[in-house]
Nucleic acid binder design. Structure first.
Lengths: 243, 243
DNA sequence: CCCGCAAATTTGTCCGGACTTCTTGCGGTG
DNA sequence: CACCGCAAGAAGTCCGGACAAATTTGCGGG
């Protein structure tokens, strides 16, 4: 009703987007109560099922919290200060807010501990890229990243462009598949000498290392990235809600 | 029907638990296809709504992946090797698999950068505990943890017990409230001299630092914990699924 | 034997309704 | 004034049905 939108995306997503925009525009301040489910049904002219699906998304994003018998209230701003990256959209958005420049390093073979760490079969070949991520094109690097791309997609590597688009998204469009799942493994490590040089930090300084394994809808590994962030510059934040 | 169970928990949760047990018992191997939604409806004598809610939970846990037109398949075991801790149950379970011993350090006042890091008001008082987490009672420490408890709950601190139960769960039972939300902030840091000593690692060695802010259902901060894990011993793993 | 199209299968979206459980506020009672 | 119980309100659970979109399967033709 009040949400024309692309109509190619489901109704609940349109409603969620509309409510999200309202909240971010300040229409509902921190701690304010959202309209009840019944009221939203009337307002958008949709069933309660669709309203609940939309609210479920917002809750998963940490934007609202809901309590039986009480209502839905907007979560405090402090609770969503930092990068959540807990859903696919946010993960892609984070990448869009920064610039990734890389160079092609050709085929490599992953073996031994390195293969096990990345969860690939020992001795398998991968196409290796190396690059730096920055907030602004001229600024300091916030991460040094090794990327390993499945050799079946090697042909598309020359077409990959530096910029705000994620490599995964570009690969998906070039190869004709969609993102299915991302697994993130996070741990601490001491910076290697190359990393330290690239990031401008002392050798063996602590870094946050994030290994992301990207799979398509069939569960096949398409891309693996290993990012090292200087300890002071990066905090990974996430929330867990009841139910 | 086939799931008697406590009946105090919703039907979809019982079905989810039953399917989870079947999968972990090996009834459906890695990559195997689960019965279709219609079949599960018949098998449990429930509506498709309830089946879908159960499957939604399993998908959120990363146990299965689903594709329109294709079915639900059991995710690979390699995808759930490490600690996910992406839902409340898993977070509590992780704690239950280890032992936390602590000592009471009385009231402290959090100020300045420390207060900001933990997301509390500058100068507010908190009840401070300090302890070590181990896999087995005699083994090496896997984490050094500072815990800050809201002063309103100070009276319950003497009743807290060392062991597998989480402090939060104990506090909830003592204070008569339930868990609502947990926020986790993860970053890398260099071990301080006290941490290094307690964990048996070199000073300034990299550690994974996890700050967890526990809130009750009303959104009030009840407990904050700051855990430092030796880099080699701990990897935080999580998955993100489409939709 | 391979390709393309149609049909069957399976999950995704959406509706309307009913009942349950929890919260909140109101008013009556002691 | 403090306490208790009750009623209204709100989200949670569950049902049955319908259609849509994506995938797989099988059939028929080349």
């Amino acid at each position: 009703m009040m949400v024309p939108a692309s109509s190619r995306e489901p109704r609940y997503a349109q409603v969620a987007a509309d409510l999200r925009a309202s909240i971010k525009a300040g229409e509902f301040g921190e701690g304010a109560q959202l309209p009840t489910e019944t009221m939203l049904c009337a307002r958008y002219g949709i069933s309660r099922f669709t309203v609940r699906e939309a609210l479920r998304r917002l809750q998963a994003e940490g934007l609202i919290s809901r309590r039986r018998g009480s209502g839905s209230i907007v979560s405090g701003a402090t609770q969503r200060l930092r990068q959540p990256l807990s859903d696919l959209g946010e993960l892609l958005q984070y990448a869009a807010d920064s610039q990734f420049s890389f160079e092609d390093r050709g085929l490599v073979t992953l073996t031994g501990a390195r293969a096990e760490e990345l969860g690939v079969v020992d001795g398998s070949p991968w196409h290796h890229l190396y690059g730096l991520r920055r907030i602004s094109p001229g600024g300091a690097a916030i991460a040094a990243t090794d990327v390993y791309i499945h050799p079946d997609l090697s042909g598309h590597v020359p077409a990959l462009k530096t910029g705000p688009l994620t490599l995964f998204k570009q690969l998906g469009e070039l190869g004709g598949f969609r993102i299915g799942q991302v697994i993130q493994n996070i741990n601490a490590a001491a910076a290697g000498s190359q990393e330290a040089l690239a990031l401008g930090i002392p050798r063996r300084a602590p870094v946050l290392r994030i290994v992301r394994i990207y799979r398509d809808e069939r569960g096949r590994i398409v891309e693996i990235s290993v990012s090292s962030h200087p300890a002071e510059l990066f905090t990974y934040s996430m929330h867990i809600d009841r139910s």
